[in-house]
């Protein structure tokens, strides 16, 4: 058996932690697939029945835009697995996969996988642990996202800096979580930037004082007889008060 293949399969997230012996059994029960450039590995929308481990070569993950043109979502190379979730459920494929060059892949079907699970409680338990860990991980991020969403609603963006390290942490643990976090932070930064621009705009506009009008309004108020009398009275009053203060102090 190809040891290199065992090393590769070991790194697939859901198999991570299984014994070499269990991995060997899974590998042995898989089917080796040889693909030429342009061959389709899976089609978007069809029921997924198996996982593919790319042993060598490069595969593109594709979907279509609204006009029906192909859009490449990602490229996967040696050691990467695609269609992992098909081992546990039979949902339609969310994207297609086509070989970009000659490829070798190991296909593990759900049927094969379930036979192994039936026969090996140790493998079942390990898989359950793996998924419960994932679930816990996802829940943690959902809870964080709820907390952050509340902060955003209150205009508090201070969490971004504190939470940036999570991105690296998540990156090593779960690529999807890292993707979500990255998308979330990008969104928050954009919202924050828009808000700051708006606020600056408001602050800037606040200083538009029409100096000519200021002068005109001032002259209108101070030009009346009432005002000249008032000014005179105020002057007298202030002088009187100043004198009083002087006499009180002395």
């Amino acid at each position: 058996m190809n040891r290199n293949l065992i090393e590769q399969i070991k790194k697939i997230d859901i198999f991570n932690g299984l014994s070499d012996e269990a991995l060997m059994e899974i590998t042995q029960q898989g089917t080796l697939r040889i693909l030429k450039a342009g061959d389709a590995l899976m089609k978007k929308g069809e029921t997924g029945n198996s996982l593919f481990l790319i042993h060598s070569g490069l595969v593109k993950i594709i979907t279509e835009d609204s006009k029906g043109d192909e859009v490449i979502l990602n490229k996967c190379g040696a050691g990467e697995a695609i269609g992992e979730m098909a081992l546990l459920d039979s949902s339609p494929r969310s994207a297609g996969a086509v070989a970009l060059e000659d490829c070798e892949a190991l296909e593990i079907s759900r049927e094969t996988f379930q036979k192994i699970l039936d026969a090996r409680p140790d493998v079942s338990l390990q898989i359950i642990r793996k998924y419960s860990h994932r679930l816990r991980f996802a829940t943690t991020y959902i809870e964080r996202a709820i907390d952050w969403a509340q902060k955003i609603a209150e205009g508090d963006y201070s969490f971004i800096e504190q939470s940036q390290p999570l991105l690296n942490e998540a990156g090593s643990d779960n690529a999807k979580a890292a993707q979500l976090l990255s998308a979330f932070f990008t969104m928050v930064n954009k919202v924050k930037a828009r808000e700051e621009d708006l606020r600056k705009e408001v602050a800037k506009l606040s200083f538009e004082i029409d100096q000519e009008r200021r002068k005109k309004d001032f002259e209108e108020i101070t030009g009346t007889e009432f005002y000249s009398n008032l000014k005179e009275q105020a002057k007298t009053l202030r002088m009187k008060r100043a004198q009083q203060n002087k006499s009180e102090e002395s």
Binding site: S206, E208, I209, R214, F218, I221, T222, K231, A234
Partner: peptide
């Protein structure tokens, strides 16, 4: 804007008084 404008005039008047 409007408040700043009126306040500027008020400040001028206060100085004049």
């Amino acid at each position: 804007d409007q408040d700043m404008q009126g306040t500027a005039v008020t400040a001028d008047v206060a100085r004049s008084l």
